[in-house]
Amino acid sequence: MTEGDMPFEFVRECVLLGRRWRARVDERLKPTGMTLARFTVLYWVDELPAGFTQRDLADVVGIEGPTLVRLLHALEDLALIERVAVATDRRAKTIRPTAAAAPLLRELTRVCAELSQERLSGLEKRRLPSATRLVREARAALE
């Protein structure tokens, strides 16, 4: 591999890692009726400050509006979120988690942490902070 090939190889490996992670997490979450995509949206709904809109959420999660709407419908059907019209703009909606979301978020986070420990505990711990910074830099370069 030449030096010029390295950025592409890095991205390729990140993409493959993401796909494998999603498959493993989806497999583990199946008994809960959740998927990594739903969990990700629910996580950010819980983490973002009050008053954020669907557009804000789509930007943070990195998905298109129609995809987000489908996920929000599913979470709403499960009574995990509620959408509230913005008083100053009837087209905009803010999203907030319901009380039922908190225990589920704790469980989903536990399952993901457990999976990560099981599958990735063999990685050199001293290299993880550097690898994490590198991935964040790459993600920022694509913004």
Rank of each mutant, 00 (worst) to 15 (best):
M1C: 12
T2P: 15
E9V: 15
E9N: 14
E9M: 15
F10D: 00
E13G: 12
V15Y: 10
R24G: 05
R24P: 03
D26M: 06
E27C: 07
R28T: 03
K30V: 09
P31H: 01
P31D: 05
G33R: 01
R38W: 00
F39I: 00
V41Q: 01
V41M: 01
V45N: 01
E47C: 10
R55T: 15
A58I: 10
D59H: 14
V60C: 07
V60L: 09
V61T: 02
P66V: 08
V69P: 04
V69K: 02
R70I: 06
A74N: 07
E76T: 09
E76K: 08
L78I: 00
A79W: 07
L80D: 00
A85T: 12
A85H: 10
V86I: 09
T88I: 10
D89G: 08
D89W: 12
D89Q: 13
R91M: 13
A92P: 07
K93N: 10
I95C: 09
R96N: 02
P97C: 05
T98R: 03
A102S: 11
A102H: 06
P103T: 02
L105A: 07
L105E: 01
E107M: 12
E107P: 09
T109S: 04
V111Q: 04
V111P: 00
V111M: 04
C112A: 12
L115P: 02
S116G: 15
Q117N: 13
E118N: 08
E118W: 12
R119T: 12
L123N: 11
R127F: 06
P129M: 13
S130D: 15
T132G: 11
R133A: 15
R133S: 13
V135W: 06
A138K: 12
A140R: 14
